[in-house]
Nucleic acid binder design. Structure first.
Length: 259
DNA sequence: ATGCCCGATCTCATCGGA
């Protein structure tokens, strides 16, 4: 079973790229972030023609997350995170797909830091952590998938010293990610490739992709009950090279069938 | 130290992204 994550940065503006990539790589489940469209403008019928059922949590202009499932309906288990009643930002949706519980998330960017946006990021991270604890306690096979907006280690940044004070790399945020690892989650891609420089995002500016000046910020956190089935991971870098593409590349993992 | 490049928006400029 292939599970992919893709921050598409505007789903309707890049629908052709998305459909072609689905046809090419045929992931079984896809977590999308930054839809940048409200619920009514989500391209459900085009995706259905491509063979994918979907659930989504849209929002006009910003944010927005979706889970696609190839050939079967995702069974929604939650949308949004508890703990902040006034939160109108669409950043979390969760569903069971083929026996795996998948939480699709788009963690807040948090810049500028310090400031209210950074505070919101840290609160959101804690709310995710709480949801994660409940999922771990269930002992279900779970993957928390998406754009975490954090580089967990120096290896995940092309130039760490330039990012020290950034909301994606500040100690508070890396610590929050580390707390989830302590809770029992495993960073799937890093687990398979401990010593490689792997990036999933490159700025549009200054020919970042051509220079491979990237960041690894799109992650898969696996529960201990799912981790033994992890076999492979990769980044579809050729998608980032296309004209009119997102600033993120799709990332994927392979999960073996349940024993 | 700042902007660069992008998408969305009732656009001709601003915000948010990371």
């Amino acid at each position: 079973m292939r599970i992919a994550s893709y921050n598409i940065n505007g789903i309707n503006g890049r629908l052709g790229i998305l459909i072609d990539w689905l046809d090419e790589t045929q992931p079984d489940a896809v977590c999308l972030q930054e839809l940048k469209c409200d619920d009514g403008k989500f391209p459900a019928s085009a995706l259905e023609k491509a063979g994918y059922a979907a659930i989504w949590q849209g929002q006009k202009s910003w944010n927005g997350v979706a889970i696609l499932s190839r050939g079967r309906e995702p069974v929604e288990t939650q949308r949004g995170l508890a703990g902040e009643a006034e939160d109108g930002q669409s950043r979390y949706i969760e569903a069971a797909v083929n026996g795996v519980l998948i939480g699709c998330l788009y963690l807040p960017n948090g810049n500028p830091a310090p400031g209210p946006k950074f505070d919101y990021k840290l609160r959101w991270f804690e709310r995710l952590r709480e949801r994660g604890k409940a999922l771990l306690a269930s002992e279900a096979p779970v993957a928390l998938v998406g754009d975490f907006n954090v580089m967990p280690t120096e290896r995940d940044v092309y130039a760490p010293d330039r990012w020290r004070d950034d909301a994606l790399f500040r100690p508070e945020v890396r610590k929050a990610f580390g707390e989830m690892i302590k809770d029992g989650w495993t960073d799937a891609v890093r687990n398979l490739h401990p010593d490689e420089n792997i990036y999933t995002f490159w700025k549009y500016w200054r020919q970042s992709f051509e220079r491979d000046a990237g960041l690894r910020i799109d992650h898969f956190l696996l529960s201990p009950t799912l981790l033994p089935r992890l076999t492979e991971s990769g980044v579809d870098r050729h998608i980032r090279a296309l004209e009119g593409t997102s600033d993120h590349a799709p990332v994927w993992i392979e999960i073996a069938d349940a024993g």
